[in-house]
């Protein structure tokens, strides 16, 4: 059976992902960096990713279960299901909002919230990539997290405004949701994508 399984390979900016009956995420050595920097970085980031995935599960956000960690390699469970990108609707967007609320409440900022990094299976939503996640209680960081998600909705879906509203509905169970969402608006307005100069002098 295994012999027939298709192996897929993705080379991201930081890690290589091999999908077979399990998922292997390898932070390969970067030849451009001296080993003193490279080795420590890869180990540190791998450990941090695993730790944050465990934290996320603890607060009720589904992620793949980590089967093994060897230095710069994480072996995790393969999640079956549809890429959220293909099944996105208001119901799914609301669930994403609820999950992000849980992450933010626990001080987890995902760092790369896009539908590409989520899988939906029988009503259950999984977050599959915590490669850029970090721990903080900073409102700005949480605001940026959501801003990135809204940008990705805009880029991929015609009905992004409805999806955005549904997300906000789900996210609003977070005690500091109002504060974060206000910051998101501010980020949009000042937007590095529009004109930051009005807000930051002397850059």
């Amino acid at each position: 059976m295994l012999g027939f399984m298709k192996v897929k390979r993705y080379i991201g900016g930081e890690a290589e992902v091999i999908i077979s009956e399990v998922v292997e995420k390898i932070r390969k050595p970067k030849r451009y960096r001296i080993p003193e920097i490279d080795e420590e970085l890869r180990k540190k980031r791998t450990r941090s990713e695993v730790r944050i995935m465990a934290m996320a599960r603890k607060v009720g956000v589904a992620t793949p279960i980590v089967l093994d960690v060897e230095g710069d390699k994480i072996i995790m469970e393969r999640i079956e299901g549809e890429a959220v990108k293909n099944v996105m609707d208001e119901e799914v967007a609301r669930k994403i909002g609820e999950a992000v609320a849980k992450l933010h409440r626990a001080g987890i900022v995902h760092g790369d919230l896009t539908p590409m990094n989520m899988i939906y299976n029988n009503g259950k939503l999984y977050f599959v990539d915590f490669g850029l996640a970090f721990h903080t209680h900073d409102i700005e960081a949480k605001g940026v997290d959501i801003h990135v998600f809204f940008e990705s909705l805009k880029a991929s879906f015609e009905n992004w405004e409805k999806l955005k509203d549904a997300f906000i509905e789900g996210y609003s169970c977070y005690e500091r949701a109002k504060e974060v969402l206000e910051r998101v608006k501010e980020i949009e307005e000042r937007g590095r994508y529009i004109d930051r100069s009005k807000y930051e002098v002397n850059r």
């Binding site: 080379i11 991201g12 900016g13 930081e14 970067k30 451009y32 960096r33 001296i34 003193e36 920097i37 490279d38």
Partner: peptide
């Protein structure tokens, strides 16, 4: 130099992948 330029190379690579 090694630290600062590694950072620049890393973000460049991330942008290329993205």
């Amino acid at each position: 130099q090694e630290t600062a330029f590694s950072m620049l190379a890393e973000v460049s690579e991330r942008a290329m992948a993205y």
